[in-house]
Design a protein around this nucleic acid. Sequence first.
DNA 1: GTTATTATATGACCTGATGTTATGAAGCTG
DNA 2: CAGCTTCATAACATCAGGTCATATAATAAC
Lengths: 316, 316
Amino acid sequence: MKLDSEHLEILAVIVEKGGLTEGADALGKSQPSVSRSMALLEKRIGSALFEPGRRPLRPTELGQRLAKLGGQIRSANQEASLLVRRFQQGHAGRLRVGGTQIFMDGVISTMIADFQSRHDDVQIEQSYGYMDGLAAGLRNGTLDCAILPMPPAQVPAEMTFVPLLPGHNVIACRAGHPLTRRKGITLADIDNYTWIAPPSDSPLFRDLQRAVKAIGRDDFRVSFSGGTLASIMSVLTGSDALTIMPYSVVFLARRSLALDVLPLRIEHPDRQLGLLTMTGQQAPAALKRFSEFLTAEFHRLRNRMDHELQMARRRG
Amino acid sequence: MKLDSEHLEILAVIVEKGGLTEGADALGKSQPSVSRSMALLEKRIGSALFEPGRRPLRPTELGQRLAKLGGQIRSANQEASLLVRRFQQGHAGRLRVGGTQIFMDGVISTMIADFQSRHDDVQIEQSYGYMDGLAAGLRNGTLDCAILPMPPAQVPAEMTFVPLLPGHNVIACRAGHPLTRRKGITLADIDNYTWIAPPSDSPLFRDLQRAVKAIGRDDFRVSFSGGTLASIMSVLTGSDALTIMPYSVVFLARRSLALDVLPLRIEHPDRQLGLLTMTGQQAPAALKRFSEFLTAEFHRLRNRMDHELQMARRRG
DNA sequence: GTTATTATATGACCTGATGTTATGAAGCTG
DNA sequence: CAGCTTCATAACATCAGGTCATATAATAAC
C-alpha cells in the first residue's frame, strides 16, 4: 500500500507545530482540509496517528515516526523547489560552451573561472571547434552557445550573434625580441625568423597565410606547429619565433608572460569575436547569465585594452 | 512554489527506468496518466524536464537533479509504508506495561527480554503499580496492559483478564536453612526467625499478615523491609530470614540463587496471575503479540514447575 | 526515402481528493 | 460550569489524475 507523500508532509508539520490548527496555518491551508487529510491517512493505514481524546492533538508512536519520514520528504521537496528557482535564475544548471581553441584557452577560460566562482552550481562543459562544427552543435542541441570569431554578415539565419570584441589579430613575439627594437620593420627583417603555426585547420592559420601573402611572400618557415595555446606560449617566449594571435590573447597573457607585439598591421576579414546562440530556442537561464557576464567582462577588457593603447601612443 | 511530491516520485521512476512507458509500467499506472503528470509538472516549474524531440525520453540537467530528489522522497515514502506494516504486525511500536513489582522483576522482566530479542523494534515502557493504579492507567490510556494477581471475580467490567498462572504464594528461605531440615515444622519453629517484608502497601504484604495470622500469631518480627526484589533476594540468601513470595518467582530465581521453599501451605484468596487489558479498545498490534508470547511462555513455565513438583513428590 | 515500429502526447470522460465556509462537538482552563 | 480553544463534520466547487482510444512524432528497418 502506497501512502500519499503529501499526507506525510502534512503530518510532519502538524507534529512539528504541536497541533492541527497551527499546522494548517503553517501550511497555508484551512483547518478542516488538514483535518480531513489526516482522517483519510488514518483510514488508509487503519491505525490512529493521534492519541484519541487529546485536545492539543498528540501523535501516537506511529504518528511520531511517520512524521519524521514526512519531514524527510518535506525537506527533499523544499530542496527541489529551491533547485528549480536557482535553475531559473541561472545560478544552477549545465552550460555547454564551444569555441575556438586559442581564444577559449587564452581569454574565455579565465572568465569562466570567474563566472563559476559566482555561480557555483553552474556546471560548464567546454568543447573546441570551428565555425561549422560549432554551428552544427548549436543546431542539434549538443551546444548551448559558441564563442568564435565571425564576420557579422555570415551569421546563420536561425542564430543570434552577440559581438564581444573586434577580431583583431597581431604578430606576437617574446619580449626583448630583436625586432621590437627596430623602428621600421621591413619584409626582410621578418623573413629572418621562423613561425609558430596555429592548428592548420584553424581560421588563425589561414589568417597567417593571408598576412604573409599580404606582406608579399608566398611561403614562410614553420618551426613549431600542432600545439595548443600553452605549448605555443612556451615556444614563443623561449625562442625568437613569431606567431599570429588575437590581440586580446596576447594582452591577457602579458600579465604573466613576457610577450610583445610587433607594430605591424595585419589584414584580415572584418570579424568580431562574439557569442553565437540559437535564436528562438528557449535557452537555459544560466546561458542568459553567462551571456550578460561575458558582455560585462569584455566591456572591461576592451576598456583596459584601449587604455593601454593610449599609453602606448603617448609613449611613442 | 510548492512542487507535488508525487510528481517528483514519478519523475524519479521514469528517469530510473529510462523511459516514460517503462516508468508508467513500474508505477502501475497508464502511460497517458504519467505523461500528463510530467506535462503538468513542467508547466508548473516552467522549464523542460526532458530533452525535446528525443524518443527514448531523456531528462534535462534539471530533470536529472529533480529526479534524484524524487528518489529520496520515494524511499522515505516506502520506508513509511514498511513502518506501518510492521506496526500493524506488532513488530514495531510501543507497549506500556504495568505490573506488581516483585512479579515483574522476578518473572516478567526476563520474558520481556526474550520478547524484545524477537521483536527488536517494540519499545517497552515498564511501570509498577497495584491493582487500583494499574486499572486507572488502563482506563485513562497511559497503560496498554497490566500484569498482576487478581481474583477472577473482581475483574472490572470494561476489562479483559487472561489468567497466566495460579497465584500461589510460598514461604521462601535460603538453601540450607535450618528449617528445611525439619520434618514437621511447627509454629514455634517459625517463630524463631525474622521476616523480610514486601512493600507494606502490596497485596503480598497483606498475604503475609494473613498467613501469619492463620498460623495462629498476631504479629511477626520484620528484619528487612522496603526493598525491591534484588535487595530482598540478597537479604534472603544471606540470612536466615524468611519471606513470602509467588512460587513462580522463587522457581525462576533458583536457577541462579540458592533458595528453598518451606513445605507449608499458605492460605490466601483464589487469585490468578494474569494479563489485564481494556476490552473494546483497539489495542496496538504489538500488544496482541505480547499477549500471545506471554501465554506461551507461561505455558512452558507451568510445565516446568509441574515437572519439578513431580520430582519433589517422588523424592519425598 | 518510405514504411513500420515504437514512444509519447492529446482528447473525452469519470472519479475522488482537496479546497472552501459554516457549524457542531469535545477537551481544557479558570 | 462557563467560556475558550481545538478539532471534526457537512455541503459544495474545483481540479488533479485515473482510464481508453487515438493522434503524432522519432527511430528503426527495408
